[in-house]
Design a protein around this nucleic acid. Sequence first.
RNA 1: CGGGGCGUGGCGCAACCUGGUAGCGCGUCUGCUUUGGGAGCAGAAGGUUGUGGGUUCAAAUCCCACCGCCCCGACCA
Length: 573
Amino acid sequence: MRWSQLFIPTLREDPADAEVPSHRLLLRAGYIRQLAAGIYSYLYLGQRSVLKISRIIREEMDRIGAQEFFLPAIHPAELWQESGRWDQLADTMFQFKDHGGRELCLGMTHEEVMTDIARGELRSYRQLPQIWYQIQTKFRDEARPKSGLMRLRQFIMKDSYSFDIDEAGLDASYKKHYDAYCRIFSRCGLDYQIVEAHSGAMGGSQSHEFMVVSDAGEDHIALCVKECGYAANLEKARSAVKPVQDLDGDHAPEEFSTPNIRTIEELVAFSKTGPEHMMKAVVYVAPAADKDKKDEVVLAFVRGDHQLSEAKLADALGGATVRSARPEEIQQTFGAAPGSIGPLGVKGVRILIDEAFRGRRNLISGANRDHHHIRYLTPEKDFTGAYHDLREVADGDPCVRCGRSLRVASAIEVGHIFKLGRRYAQAMGLRVLDRDGKEVTPIMGSYGIGVERILTAAIEQNHDQNGMCPPRAVAPFEVVLTPTNLKDDSIRQAAEQLYAELRQTGVEVLYDDRDERPGVKFKDADLIGIPLRITVGRKVGDGLVELSERSTGVRADAKIADVVTLVRSRYCG
RNA sequence: CGGGGCGUGGCGCAACCUGGUAGCGCGUCUGCUUUGGGAGCAGAAGGUUGUGGGUUCAAAUCCCACCGCCCCGACCA
């Protein structure tokens, strides 16, 4: 393509609204323009990158035998009411009415539509397994879109769904996706991590997320610094605890005065005891499912130097959504203010204890009386509760698997696979006959990839002061051909000829035939991140051009006669 | 949804506090010169100052309401 005829609106200055590097560069390089919060137009370069990413995904999905569909973005409300998600997801779904008053929504995902097709057509175990996928625009009315293409209200997603007759079949479909995803992200040039994931309110038994470590990411993961391979989403990550030496002796619990002591920190200073000997009481409320029932107050304990994980607490309570209790609720339930809450004498409140307290003794906690705490508390002897893993892993905690340190990092979620189970199939009446002629409910898997997030992650991982340097697989062109001065006949002729030859041999080449000074062309080429530049300049008289690699900055002269072969073999093979 | 910030030619900003009819840089257009890292000179075009209302002789500027965008937090199948 001839640059002079293309629309590549590069910007010299940083746009005021862009903070993270990928957003800034996508705007500056003329890949995208914003239409509204979380809604972007993909211009020529952006669309080329998106198409290249989509093509890679398509190839790898086809390779595992997945079949591509194209499904509606507009869905009738009834479909989502059947699965129960119309109300459940009302806050993040674009819902609207047509002229006749019929309720519709823009699809945020396609479990319902896929399952609807399946229930109408799949009759026999002989038709299974099936893997169906699509690459489609999804819509979510995010409470807070942010960071360019990181969190969008309209975005492109590859989503696939597997239907199997039994668990073993699902395992196989899951494994196929796992492997396909590895190939996809590797081909896109991403340095990624696979982490065990929390399957969330969707249910499901097993789940992995494909994460790209980046400061711009909004997820948090824990990674073992050694090669034991442990990696998990922070919502699910576990850590070991270093053994703690408790105070010996068989003491009875003893209340003591702690005037104006409310925080663990103050208590540590006051009692001259380490926080690992304290039971931090955290009070939560699980709102009642029915309006007739009362909200349930729960009391959770984590070690003084640990943090409670709300996700784990919610899991321990069977997937309920929880909120922290208000001070007046705490006062009413325990007869004391937050900061003085403890396990003794508590009635009618569920008590959850973090695993880290197993086998511990002579601990300190609140006395349920203002300005008082209790020491010599021993779980199981003095009070009981259910043990659960409740604490959030902190940077530097020992790895559960190998005991080395865990690193907590922020990351971009580019893919997510999980075993859905039978929830949708059941709710929507998908049944097939098995070998014995008995009706059974197939088991499903659901697998997603965020297309824009691959682009975002690729840029977050690969950029410098001059612009982006995306991997070749996602860059909009493979080569930029840059004549330094088109008014010089020998330069122009050499460039024109190279352009023709490169195109002929199938190299994706962007020919910068603009009447601009060399500096402008170099800056633009660096900004938009074309992996290889061929500069046709002053050495053309000696039969030489210059090759320079965007990502490394390495430059070398090459004979004009050899360039096409060289480029094809070394750079665009 | 809570907190904070910002809306002025295409982009980045100034003028607002202290009211007097909008200015700078970049970009754009024309001409000449220049040509290996965002050129120089000369000339030119381009703005209902987010929207609506109010105060005033007079509003980008003061007041009220609304809309939009960004950031932090909550939320995130």
